[in-house]
Nucleic acid binder design. Structure first.
Lengths: 340, 340
DNA sequence: AGAGTCTTCCAAAGCGCTTTGGCTTTTTTG
DNA sequence: CAAAAAAGCCAAAGCGCTTTGGAAGACTCT
């Protein structure tokens, strides 16, 4: 059942039927009702390929997925996707993942824009002066950045959490508890979120005349193993920290294991605060010692970004407004006063 | 730059240019070279929307993503995606995720097929007599199932791992080590993979005249917390098992925590074998006691499924061939002889 | 040399929708 | 009541590609 047939059986022109269906004003309400009715009864659905060709609208949002044998997709992605998908569903949007060589995403961005394959894109895990953001901005396709870049000479729309604030609060709490030597086990510091977190910790320390020692900060891929290694290194050297801030629950698993392997305890010997993106399958309250966390649901972020993308596509949202969400600091058993 | 312009500047018809580009035989090799050359030089890329409308081919593979506030996407998904994406990239395929109400995926499958939105789809986490498989089969779109259904009255193409064999081997090893009371902490037993794993354990036990006690098997969502709870329950009741087989590394985290909380040890009091899908961020050898596992890379499965989908799209693969991959049993420190 | 066969190319007809420009008919207005 | 404005509808021209059905020219064969 296509438009032509439908129009024919209604004894109307395709024009009128099309307009009736798409809510244009120049059609009699009575006629519109007839058309709508017939369309529903015959289960008429406009062919998206044809519509695409005519309008350029696709009803899809895009994401360029970096891939490669040595590239690991962040497990957070799946939670983000849950939120994004949940919202997208209610608005009949699909998501297209365009896999790209991690070292050459530009080609893919250009392709999906040139081919009008999607109505909007989002960018995640931005870095300072992120080229993708600059590219997408000049290409002129609607977009939202999940997170923030830095040092770009233009504004852009983003949704981010207050990473600096979160880690500032976490560090401040630890300092108030008497800790003087803090350590930060961070994610890849080429990404802005990690930079912001480090900044937050440093700021809190500085406010008390303290510093984050060169050897007390490390930036690694957020795996359990890296959390373990970093912690071993930190605690086995001289000048060991009495408190650790950690950028992910997964790394925190490794931290806990390392502390235990060394015959130390949390929070007796070491206090620990980790960032929690809120996974259903790994919860901080279920750690052997319930983990204090800076908490922010990445799922909610996914839903919000879908919402903003939809708004931009339909022209409801414009401009370069960035939004920053506050982060909860949830205190549980893994923090205590500094050991004497 | 579109076909018309390109044809005009080559003083050829659109037909010829199109055919030259698409490798049809009825065009002079000399002419083809000229065309190919000009196309490359001017960066001509056929408009996919137009091509879609004309041919029905989309260059995309589809996946219906169950969503909903209470629906959690499996964290395995992201690893699967890595493999899928890596292969898809090399074949210029995109992946479109169509979010659907978890309780009504049928509508979405029908939509993407009726609208010709993708060239092929894959189905994951199949259940016995899975309706999605039956639906997709009748709709006539190329597809591959990741995993297996059961009790369908037709054959279909799938790629699965030998879950039954894997857990059979694991249980057999435990039995040989003298264990008599095994327990299975399984995933959702409405899914075929879980059924197969249970079957494998039962078969191994039966071979030695043993049984899997009613209370020694549990099926839950594969979270850390559920692993913990199941283990507490198993070990605190009478008739506690001396060995546990566990369907995921994430649950195994909970198992280990529970054992420790009870003042017991692995493998002294309890032996443990878990299934490992091979995550980069959580590795069995890094558990406090290195974990024995049945191992099978879900990433490889993703790549394989992309490969088969591509083959089916281009007509290279046909029929309903199912393939079952063997699973490695990797023995590490978490298993030992049964306590006296 | 005329008939038959390839080879190489083209004009034009879709694919199914949106949208421009215009034509009637009805309603409003001074 | 005539002129102007508004309402309601339509024919046809795209959107950019593929593919059908020829046609012209070059070659082979008897």
């Amino acid at each position: 059942m296509n438009l032509k047939q439908l129009a024919h059986m209604l004894a109307l022109s395709q024009t009128t039927v099309s307009r009736a269906l798409n809510g244009y004003p120049e059609v009699n309400e009575e006629t519109r009702r007839r058309v709508m009715d017939a369309a529903k009864r015959h289960g008429y659905r406009p062919n998206p390929s044809a519509r695409r060709l005519a309008t350029g609208k696709t009803g899809m949002i895009g994401y360029v997925l970096p891939t490669g044998a040595s590239v690991d997709i962040d497990p957070h992605f799946v939670e983000f996707l849950s939120g994004l998908g949940d919202y997208a569903r209610s608005h009949e949007l699909d998501l297209v993942l365009s896999p790209a060589d991690a070292d050459d995403q530009e080609t893919t961005y250009r392709r999906i824009v040139a081919n009008r394959q999607v109505d909007a894109v989002y960018i995640s895990s931005p870095r300072p002066a992120d080229r993708r953001v600059a590219l997408v901005n000049t290409l002129g396709i609607p977009f939202i950045v999940h997170g923030r870049s830095e040092g770009l000479d233009f504004d852009y729309p983003f949704t981010d959490i207050d990473n600096e604030g979160a880690f500032h609060e976490a560090a401040r709490l630890l300092i108030q508890l008497g800790h003087r030597r803090l350590a930060l086990i961070n994610g890849d510091d080429r990404e802005t979120f990690a930079i912001h977190r480090e900044r937050g910790v440093r700021r809190a320390l500085a406010a008390s005349g303290l510093e984050l020692g060169e050897r007390h900060v490390c930036s690694v891929a957020m795996t359990e193993e890296n959390g373990y290694r970093a912690t071993r290194r930190l605690l086995e050297e001289g000048d060991a920290p009495t408190a650790i801030a950690c950028s992910s629950l997964i790394m925190a698993l490794g931290v806990v294991r390392a502390v235990r392997d060394l015959g130390l305890t949390i929070p007796g010997d070491v206090s620990l605060i980790a960032h929690d993106d809120v996974f259903p399958w790994l919860r901080p309250e279920n750690f052997s010692v319930p983990l204090s966390t800076t908490r922010s649901s990445i799922r909610l972020a996914g839903a919000r970004i879908a919402e903003r993308l939809a708004a931009r596509i339909s022209g409801l949202e414009e401009g370069a407004r960035g939004e920053v969400w506050p982060v909860d600091l949830v205190v549980r058993g893994s923090v205590a006063g500094a050991p004497a």
